[in-house]
Write a protein that binds this DNA or RNA. Structure first.
Lengths: 232, 232
DNA sequence: GAAGTGAATTGATAATTATCAAGGCAAGAC
DNA sequence: GTCTTGCCTTGATAATTATCAATTCACTTC
């Protein structure tokens, strides 16, 4: 890895409080690599060789069973994925592919694990990261079990709206196919759910969505911080 | 806590490799308490005061939103719950209540966190436990998104059957109401799902279930180790 | 034993969601 | 420009799941 890349990685919250010797040792066998869109990164069931960190771009985590497939999450910079498999030295439970051209940092499992044992600050940072991952899935699970498809969409729009600065306009970052799968519905159903939300001030024009009546959308969505707030 | 109770706790996998001084200090302000059935232990949204460990009995984790409620998991001995909230010092995302008379170990959040910093073996054990919790939820989430209600029930029966020694008979440990909620369906639907499985050799008599044709049940269920295997 | 209680089942119906089959639209290829 | 391609949308229909109401059943209480 080049020096400027190393200092870029150094600044990530996962590594910033880490001992410098341990940090450099850990990065020795790591890669910072750029993948094209739709590149397969990992396959569920394979042993965990690397911890992955999305530096730029976007990675889709998905899973298959029978002949069905579902999107589990979209990972944006700067976030890790499949940390739990790495820490347990187990097989991946999810597959991953880039959804656009992406720059990915890959750190060998063994190096993560030995750094975890060697550096207390790092083990603290790792456990916080893992706890965040856990809580994200719990929230997603609550979302799916406690809400209808339309409610899930409404709340997701409100979330994106807040992410993007409450300007009244949202730019969808993924195609609607992925959004539908993430929300646990078919693309057809997503289209219909958007139509259902039209009377609540949701105007869809391709990837651009206008929210003209947030109040009424919130009345329908009934957002809940214990499901929708990323920071909790 | 009484000496015999302390040595009982000492043997838990979470604590067995822990330094003795750290262990004793951690348990100083802990309780080992017996609760009656249907006792409320924690409420989602409250700050995490204790890490809980189920020593005997059974605890239901559940969540609410709007006016709906769903069972997230049933925790059996010997397992922790709400570890992530404790490690993050955040609010609980789930509520908990005993589903039967239960003996619960409660360790103050602050003591868990300081022991985590003080003892490398303990921090390793904690991170393994947390990774297991994470992977359980991911599996549950895949289960819900990738399978129909009948398939979820069929796979759950196969899992219980294996847990209980593949004898051809299962004893349900919870009421069907909870089982239904856990599987993401209504009690009425669970009844109907059992009827759907009758031709596949599933005979229900109250809490006792006979599986007379496991082969055909598996053909329907299509079990998947990356969803159903607890040990992975 | 009878009565009462709550859980579980069943039936009828409604709501939700998925599937299948066309179309429509937009972006890139030529 | 036209053509292609893939994605999205729409319509029609089917499957799945939920809701409401009414029993039935098992178990406790008296």
């Amino acid at each position: 890895m080049r020096p400027d890349q190393i200092s870029e990685v150094r600044e990530l919250s996962l590594f910033e409080s880490m001992d410098d010797v341990v940090f450099r040792k850990m990065l020795k066998a790591s890669y910072l690599q750029t993948f094209p869109a739709h590149a397969e990164l990992i396959r569920e069931g394979d042993p965990a060789d690397f911890l992955y960190i999305v530096m730029e771009g976007c990675v889709e985590l998905f899973a298959r069973s029978n002949d069905r497939e579902t999107t589990m999450a979209m990972v944006h910079p700067v976030n890790t994925f499949i940390l739990a498999a790495v820490l347990k030295d187990a097989v991946y439970l999810m597959s991953a592919r880039t959804s656009e051209r992406s720059r990915i940092l890959m750190i060998p499992t063994a190096d993560i694990r030995s750094a975890f044992g060697a550096d207390r600050n790092f083990s603290q940072a790792i456990v916080t990261e893992l706890a965040n991952c856990y809580r994200s899935v719990v929230k997603e699970h609550k979302n799916l079990k406690l809400r209808t498809a339309v409610e899930r969409l409404a709340n997701r729009l409100i979330k994106y709206h807040a992410d993007q600065g409450n300007s009244g306009v949202i730019q969808l970052r993924h195609d609607k196919r992925s959004l539908a799968s993430m929300l646990g519905m078919t693309p057809e159903n997503l289209s219909r759910a958007f139509n259902t939300l039209k009377p609540y001030g949701v105007l869809v024009k391709g990837n651009r969505i206008e929210l003209t009546d947030l109040k009424s959308l919130e009345t329908l969505a009934k957002p809940n911080r214990l499901i929708d707030d990323r920071k909790i």
